[in-house]
Design a protein around this nucleic acid. Structure first.
Lengths: 210, 210
DNA sequence: ACCCTTATTGCGCGGCTGTCCAATAACGTC
DNA sequence: GACGTTATTGGACAGCCGCGCAATAAGGGT
């Protein structure tokens, strides 16, 4: 019976939940599973979270929020909008390697049954869309992109990424992992008036628009 | 205690399952729910289906299969490939009005837990992709479309439809229902070298390629 | 060394799930 | 009208779930 500080225990519960959810899926992650993963009793979890819904919501927020923060950080290292979009797709490729998308799919499907989880996934999804939309808007201000509705374009790109990830998860083999990002990148390039391949090439190889 | 023929009873079970699933979602549709919906005992269901997984799979096959058949029928009424694609999107708009997509989302999410349901949704999904791909191929043969990889294009269009439907379901309000089909249509037009708006206009208003 | 706060335990409760099975009742056949 | 087939019943069974609560033990402040 090792006694931890409230914040440390909370984090451990979230970490254990993600560990279980990554193998069993969110819908099958139970209080007893998480407790067993931590090696503690199940009652402990209800001492920190008022319901299992909030445990899953907190775990999803941790996973998806970290992904978002990492991506934002990677994008900040580029000074121009084109470089930031390229960094966005590069980060997406990396985060796609583990079973990150399965988490999103579970969250969407469970949203109707688990209010807190639904609200969290909705909030983070909008954050991703805004990240794309605002970067496109910067590109327009800088005069390197052309788009009359950055918001709608961002929704389309995000939807395409989601849909392709869905098909990738459902039909491993027919769609290659690399295709997902390549296709979404090409679609975005076409929408904002960028030459094909611009976002795939490292910054040094890009033609400078003067 | 009204006694039905095996085929009639099977169909009633499937119909009752769909009725329950449309309100409670597939994941929450239980044997007892379906039995109560029919006004019979729960044991009866296992007299016709070996497991709940197969009940849900059969119900999904009925719903999605009917949609597919209706769409194919609507497409057959057009003689040219362009008209058939236009009919495809028109049919998709209609089938999207009820909660058809929620069924797909549930099926995808439950696929890992329910083998039969997963296999069924996978099979039907491929059928939809093939329907698009083969129609594009006809358009190429007829010389009215240009596309070097109809199969990949079909996957992209289907993914975009799925992704947009996902966002529509998750964020009612930010994405309009009509946008889903409009955007997917525009994407396809661009991919196969069709003038923008071609697929949205009725056949009479289309320019005849001679 | 004491005490008071509180993190943690361990289990019980009510309810839900899918599956199975003996008993029953309906229907076609002779 | 009797009989055999079989559709249908209704509940038992084992297992899982989220949640709540009294008891326990750990540890910091004094």
């Amino acid at each position: 019976m090792t006694r931890l500080s409230p914040t440390a225990r909370r984090e451990e519960i979230i970490a254990a939940t993600l560990r279980v959810a990554s193998t069993k899926g969110m819908a099958n992650t139970t209080v007893r599973d998480v407790a067993a993963e931590m090696g503690t009793s199940s009652g402990l979890i209800h001492h920190y979270f008022s319901s299992m819904d909030e445990v899953l919501a907190a775990a999803f927020e941790e996973a998806a929020g970290t992904d978002l923060a990492n991506t934002e950080a990677a994008m900040r290292s580029s000074s121009d909008a084109i470089g930031r979009l390229a960094a966005f797709f590069a980060a997406y490729t990396r985060s796609d390697e583990d079973s990150a998308f399965q988490l999103w799919l579970d969250a969407w499907a469970e949203a109707s049954r688990r209010p807190a989880l639904g609200a969290t996934s909705q909030r983070l999804n909008v954050a991703w869309q805004r990240l794309i939309a605002s970067t496109i808007a910067e590109g327009i201000d800088d005069g390197v992109m052309v788009c009359d509705a950055p918001d709608a374009t961002a929704w389309r790109v995000l939807s395409l990424l989601d849909g392709l990830s869905l098909q990738l998860a459902a039909h491993p083999g027919v769609i290659e992992r690399g295709d997902v990002v390549d296709w979404a990148m090409t679609a975005l390039e076409a929408e904002v008036g960028l030459p094909a391949g611009t976002l795939a090439r490292p910054a040094g190889q890009r033609a400078v628009a003067d």
